[in-house]
Design a protein around this nucleic acid. Structure first.
Lengths: 146, 146
DNA sequence: GCTGAAAGGCCCGGGCA
DNA sequence: TGCCCGGGCCTTTCAGC
């Protein structure tokens, strides 16, 4: 990928609603050239989509935690990720190497809701959990250095 | 927040570039009514911004890991988060309760680059690290259930 | 791949219910 | 709050190079 494309990706990562006209001004291309490049970046999957950044705090979910998860029955088929997907508090689910099987990132309203969520995680996926509470988040979702 | 606003937030979380006209069609309001509500959601910080979703894989960073970080000198001022911010491989930095001080989420090109990054993390922040490699990500960045 | 132009649609105020 | 309504801007497409 060459420099102009990377610049476009950077600009759209910072402001996903930037207009083609502004992108054109910022890159020194015409709007149609920019438009074509953005379309190609979308088709190649470099730009996977566009999203509004929703503030979990403002939406009543100020408590973030990481839950590491270990299956209680290693012989059972591992469909934990699928079963856990139905719990809306789970923002992310990563399968990992190491002592545990999955790391979940969750958002809840309060400590009591976390306790409740942990019970549901254990019940739904038949797992043991280890929870790390987030105290503050200096930064997250920084775009990759393109 | 009432149902129409939540619907707007859901729609924009799924497609951050949806036009006001389409939002209006989807919610049964006029475009200017939708426009006003979106502006209010932005002002209240419910919608913190808009971003293109950049695929780390497509951009040459297929390896994800979590790095737990513990200061070697607990007496030193804790500016680890600030110092670590200059490493572009770090996508997120969370201050956490528990044995360790921070959890970092990082993206690199290959195992060798992870080794190199770990050395830089230790050097920059004067910390001990514990790394968990991500094997696959069933899902991440799911919007909160608004 | 890029440019430029042209049509159609969208954005985004102001005014009023 | 929400709706209607313009003027201006943006998007999108299509030759032409």
């Amino acid at each position: 990928m060459e420099e102009t494309d990377r610049e476009i990706v950077r600009l759209l990562a910072a402001d996903g609603r930037m207009s083609y006209t502004d992108l054109a001004r910022a890159t020194g291309l015409s709007t149609s050239a920019v438009h074509q490049r953005v379309r190609r970046l979308e088709q190649r999957g470099v730009i996977a989509g566009y999203a509004a950044v929703v503030s979990a705090e403002q939406v009543g979910l100020p408590l973030t935690a990481f839950i590491s998860v270990t299956p209680l029955d290693p012989a059972a088929p591992d469909d934990a990720a699928t079963r856990l997907a139905e719990l809306p508090e789970i923002e992310a689910c990563h399968s990992v190497a190491g002592e545990e099987s999955y790391i979940l990132k969750v958002r809840v309203a309060a400590p009591g809701a976390l306790e409740d969520l942990l019970a549901r995680v254990r019940a739904v996926a038949n797992v043991r959990t280890r929870t790390t509470v987030v105290l503050s988040t200096p930064y997250e979702n920084r775009p990759p250095a393109v």
